[in-house]
Design a binder for these strands. Structure first.
Length: 834
RNA sequence: GGGCGGUUAGCUCAGCCGGUUAGAGCGCCUGCCUUACAAGCAGGAGGUCGCAGGUUCGAUCCCUGCACCGCCCACCA
């Protein structure tokens, strides 16, 4: 067998990545009723290229998928991408702006055409990246959240929910992004604490000598005030109830109402109410039947209702309002104040609360069964504590605003009739109004929130609403792997949709992974410039090394600190495997005797042990454990000991057998190098990915071989220590290190070199003897320690309570330990006595 | 205001149901270019497991309190 001298992953990784795709290696057929493992990818946004977080998530999924496939299950990984409404629309809009083109002038159809072009380019790039990473997806089932099949699913879901009365249209105060020109759901608003001010403004009260002081963080909204509230328990309540305040600047009488929203003791005790521009005030306005006056428009400019301030930007208006109030002596005081400001999570523009007509989904009825599904364990979170976060949100869930004033997305399947004004909701585009038959109908201009279509992903990708073989073969999916940041956005909504539409959970397990951070634990971000580009890093170190570096750090749920030095270490690991292969491949595969030596028996037992650990680790999503176990098996056991011992033997046939199994064990974590080497072994079969994953085999356990070889290791290690401590020339081999009999009858080993003697004699129950000048101080120190240990053990072992409660294996271990200490003590005493 | 997570070696982190001497990678020190590998080999130093109590025969692990760090949710003018 031939093998290149240097490990260069770049030379074979792209080759295998292509072959896996070309040969449709990971395609599976539907087979309803058969055992399966299925997973749908969290579809990456088509907005750009993949980052390290994607690579981490994909590494986890691919490891799990490859492992499941190798255990013999019918395994499906559905790939795909998300149209990402706001994000994509924003990026294309910006690109157009750079070209001097205005989105609105371009028009809806042309714009959408343009976005599709963008999608083809960037979406295609993302898919290429995933293929190059070797992800074992079934590419024949690739989907996009805006493709024809998914559009049907979206309409079906919308119509069903509408007919059930769970989707409705309503005027409500919403989060409006003046930049994106659309409404945002509560989840799409990020809150940030910013320094601001609390302005205390004097409102004159009709028929009252004292001015009522009102505090606000947004003085410009006072222009739209329609009432002032004070707490019913306020001492001034009786006197002020029914009176009117005169709204400064606007000179409009507004009623004084009693409402709990005015907290006693906060500020001046009185609150201005602006129903049109604050969620709280909106509710208060409803409670007290107040009119709503919109003074800020959707571009964040003051409306005509703002009188002399009309046309000003909201922040300019704030300045001017404050100046004007001060000029009129109506400003009581100004305090510095820290306030939480809502920003659009895409463009970071400060959100403006506005009242508008939107489409909503009732969530409470959907949330109840979704909560139950997790409570009953039909869906399990890993790590389990994330279920609490999920419950917290689900118990307090509010209706979801599902309409967006965008062009890129699923247009809401609602048609307005120009004649009877009623609406038609339909799965297929209608020609006429369902109520009056008029042809003068026009489709709703708004599109659905991106997460509406994403929420249907686990079954829409499998053919829903049709009852397809895929759906019957692979739903519910087995696992969802995702980040904690979209538990609410996505995970919870999939659970609700899945239960509502399919009558069953969308997945049985949810693995919540952590964030990829840089070596200093900083979040990776483009602005900080600390990102690691997967393309660059994969090319530099090899995909296997990067992947292994990610997985070896992937303790469930924890963030991982990724550094190049870590990746470099894993490349060294791959290189080690490569070189071990070179050694092995230089030896004949067929041995003359086909015998199994002690070393062979030992490595077989170690491999068996490693298989047990790896299988259990994959089962529990403990990828770091699988990775660590494989690392130590390969490097520590196979290379450092087994291959070194085999150098003294002639029959390597068993080594090939173990090696091949070890490649299979490693494959889910390092798919490329294992595939490459497996093929160099000329195994019969298309791919190592389709071979069986080695399982723990009770018959493979060889305690005797382990014990005997462990003794050999002790001897060799001690010999090396002696040599190092005594500065014996490295070049001079200690026979004890390399030449003792490990499989024969010899019970005593003696090797003399200079002033060192190594002796093993079981009768003496000691392993080494060092015939060099005795270091009395060291021995005395050691003995003192040992004596203390023995006393401590005795105290425990003579404690009846302890003996009653401690398991036998513990006490036995302690007694053995005590005997060992005693022996060592006796040895040392003998040495000290000369 | 509510909730969640963390604090273990110089750095980044493991440590699964409490049980012999708490581990890894990187870094550091010493010696080796030994024909698989210097991307390597061999040996070594380095930890009062955040602090204070408690439960237990026994606590890094369980409980209580505290300190500090991080995150999420929430309409506090």
């Amino acid at each position: 067998m031939q093998i290149d001298k240097v490990y260069e992953p770049q030379r074979f990784e792209p080759h295998w990545a292509n072959r896996w795709v070309d040969e449709r290696l990971f395609h599976v057929d539907a087979a309803p009723g058969e055992p399966y493992f299925s997973l749908v990818i969290p579809p990456p946004n088509v907005t750009g290229s993949l980052h390290m977080g994607h690579m981490f998530e994909h590494a986890i999924i691919d490891a799990q998928i490859r492992w499941r496939r190798m255990t013999g299950l019918r395994t499906l990984w559905v790939p795909g991408t998300d149209h990402a409404g706001i994000a994509t629309e924003l990026m294309v809009t910006r690109q157009l702006e750079k070209e001097g083109v205005n989105k609105r002038e371009l028009g809806r159809d042309k714009f959408i055409e343009r976005v599709w072009k963008w999608k083809e380019e960037f979406g295609g790039r993302i898919v290429e990246q995933m293929k190059r990473a070797g992800l074992s997806c079934d590419w024949s089932r690739q989907r996009f959240t805006l493709d024809a099949g998914l559009s049907r699913a979206v309409r079906e879901a919308f119509v069903r929910l509408y007919e059930k009365g769970l989707i409705y249209q309503a005027d409500y105060i919403v989060n409006w992004c003046p930049r994106c020109q659309t409404v945002l759901s509560d989840l799409e608003v990020e809150h940030e604490d910013m320094p601001g001010h609390l302005w205390h403004i004097r409102y004159p009260v009709e028929g009252w000598s004292v001015k009522l002081v009102v505090a606000t963080t947004r003085p410009e909204t006072m222009l739209g005030d329609t009432a002032v509230a004070i707490n019913p328990k306020d001492p001034r309540a009786a006197e002020l109830q029914g009176k009117f305040a005169r709204l400064p600047l606007m000179e409009r009488p507004i009623p004084i109402v009693l409402d709990e929203m005015a907290e006693l003791g906060f500020g001046s005790g009185a609150v201005k109410i602006t129903p049109a521009h604050d969620p709280n005030d909106f509710e208060a306005g409803r409670r007290h039947n107040l009119p709503s006056i919109q003074v800020i428009d959707e571009h964040a400019k003051m409306t005509a209702a703002a009188g002399e301030f009309a046309g000003l930007d909201r922040f300019e208006a704030r300045k001017r309002v404050v100046e004007e109030l001060e000029r009129r002596g109506l400003m009581e005081k100004i305090e510095p104040y820290s306030l939480s400001v809502g920003k659009c999570h895409r463009c970071k523009t400060i959100v403006e609360p506005l009242v508008s007509k939107q489409w909503w989904m009732s969530m409470k009825p959907l949330a109840a069964p979704a909560i139950k599904a997790v409570e009953e364990g039909r869906i399990q979170f890993v790590p389990a504590h994330w279920a609490k976060t999920y419950y917290e949100w689900m118990y307090n869930i509010r209706d979801w605003c599902i309409s967006r004033q965008l062009w890129w997305g699923h247009r809401i399947p609602v048609w307005y009739c120009g004649d009877c004004k009623k609406i038609t909701v339909a799965r297929e585009d209608p020609d006429r109004c369902a109520h009056c038959g008029s042809a003068k109908i026009e489709q709703e201009r708004d599109v659905l929130d991106t997460w509406f279509s994403s929420g249907l992903w686990p079954f829409s990708t499998l053919g829903w609403p049709d009852d397809t073989p895929d759906l019957r073969s692979f739903y519910p999916t087995s696992l969802l792997v995702t980040g904690f940041d979209i538990i609410f956005f996505w995970c919870a909504r999939m659970i609700m949709f899945g239960l509502e539409m399919m009558g069953d959970v969308p997945f049985r397990e949810v693995h919540i992974h952590g964030l990829v951070r840089d070596a200093e634990r900083q979040k990776m971000s483009k602005t900080k410039g600390n990102t690691i580009d997967p393309l660059v890093i994969n090319d530099k170190y090899g995909t296997d090394a990067v992947r292994f570096a990610l997985l070896v750090s992937a303790a469930p749920g924890n963030d991982i600190a990724l550094s190049e030095s870590r990746i470099d270490a894993e490349k060294a690991f791959a290189n080690k495997i490569w070189n071990a292969s070179r050694l092995l491949f230089s030896k004949p595969r067929e041995g003359p005797a086909q015998s199994v030596s002690l070393a062979d028996r030992w490595i077989g037992s170690r491999l068996n042990d490693c298989a047990a650990t790896a299988n259990k680790a994959f089962e529990q999503h403990r990828y770091h454990e699988a990775a660590e176990s494989l690392y130590h098996f390969w490097w520590g056991d196979f290379c450092d000991w087994y291959l070194e011992l085999k150098k003294f033997e002639s029959d390597w046939s068993y080594a090939y057998i173990v090696y091949e199994k070890a490649l299979r064990l490693l494959h889910p974590l390092m798919p490329f190098i294992t595939e490459e080497l497996w093929h160099r072994l000329e195994m019969s079969g298309k791919s190592i990915a389709l071979s069986q994953y080695p399982q723990f085999d009770a018959a493979g356990e060889d305690r005797e071989a382990e014990a005997r070889l462990s003794f050999v290791q002790d001897i060799v290690t001690e010999a090396r220590t002696l040599r190092a401590d005594n500065k014996i020339d490295q070049k001079r081999k200690l026979d004890a290190e390399y030449n003792f009999e490990i499989d024969g009858e010899r019970k005593v080993m003696i090797e003399r070199l200079a002033n060192i003697a190594l002796i093993y004699d079981p009768a003496m129950n000691r392993r080494l003897r060092l015939d060099i000048p005795v270091d009395r101080a060291r021995l005395e120190r050691e003995n003192k320690q040992l004596e203390l240990q023995v006393v401590a053990l005795d105290r425990q072992l003579s404690n009846p309570e302890f003996l009653a409660k401690a398991p036998d294996k513990v006490t036995a271990g302690m007694r053995a330990k005590r005997a060992e200490y005693e022996t060592k003590l006796a040895e040392n005493r003998a040495a000290l006595a000369g």
